[in-house]
Amino acid sequence: MIKLQLKRIARKPSYTIGKLFVDGVYFCDTLEDTDRLDKGMSATEIATKKIPGQTAIPEGTYKVIVNTSPKFKRLLPRLVNVPGYEGVLIHRGNTAADTAGCILVGENKQVGKVLNSTYYEERLVDMLKHADNISIEIV
């Protein structure tokens, strides 16, 4: 079992910065779309507040699987049963324009960006691809 935890630390008007932990150990920084949803919202409530492609997923705990992304054609971690969302992945990218609701991994060394994201995506996939039970808690 592997437990991921994403701690959102900077909620800005156009993006959200966080820190990703793997089994309690800091792994990398994250970048998401704007955090505008409240924990525990129903799919109906989410639909009224969500701006498609510009809204971070709600806080909560989700099952994660690793499978081949039809869009990216490579193995990626996928969050399962996120209310109001489909196809939420953890992947490489640099700015909020690259997220579309997904979680980007990298190093937050520039305002509003994560860098070296390919390295962190590949490391994360290697850590997770053979795990039986993966979850992510977003706080």
Rank of each mutant, 00 (worst) to 15 (best):
T61S: 10
G60K: 05
D126A: 13
P13S: 09
M1H: 04
E122Y: 03
L6Y: 01
L76S: 04
V64T: 07
K7N: 08
Q110C: 09
D29A: 06
G53P: 14
L75V: 02
R36E: 00
P52R: 14
D35Y: 13
R8Y: 12
C102Y: 00
G84I: 08
A43C: 13
L104E: 01
D132H: 06
V139W: 09
R92G: 02
Q54R: 15
V64M: 00
R11T: 07
K39D: 07
I138R: 03
L124I: 00
L115A: 03
G106V: 10
E137T: 09
I51G: 10
A97M: 05
T95C: 09
N94I: 12
Q110M: 14
V125P: 08
P70A: 05
I9P: 03
L79I: 08
P83Q: 07
N94Y: 13
E121M: 09
I90A: 01
D35Q: 14
Q5W: 13
V22L: 04
R78M: 03
E59C: 09
H130C: 06
V125S: 07
E86V: 05
K12I: 10
G53A: 13
D126R: 13
I17F: 01
V66Y: 02
V82A: 04
Q54A: 15
G84V: 02
R11E: 12
G18I: 04
I134L: 10
I57C: 06
K109I: 15
K73S: 01
K3T: 12
P70F: 04
I51Q: 00
P77I: 01
A131V: 11
P52N: 09
G87K: 04
I65R: 00
V22C: 06
R92C: 06
Q54D: 15
S14R: 07
V80G: 06
E45M: 15
D98N: 14
Q110W: 10
R74L: 02
K49L: 15
I103H: 08
D126N: 11
N108I: 06
S42D: 15
C102I: 01
T55F: 10
M41Y: 11
T95W: 09
K63G: 01
R123F: 03
P70N: 05
G53K: 10
G40W: 11
G24K: 04
E86L: 09
R36D: 10
K7R: 11
A47F: 13
P52A: 12
E137G: 01
V139D: 15
R8E: 14
E122A: 04
M41P: 11
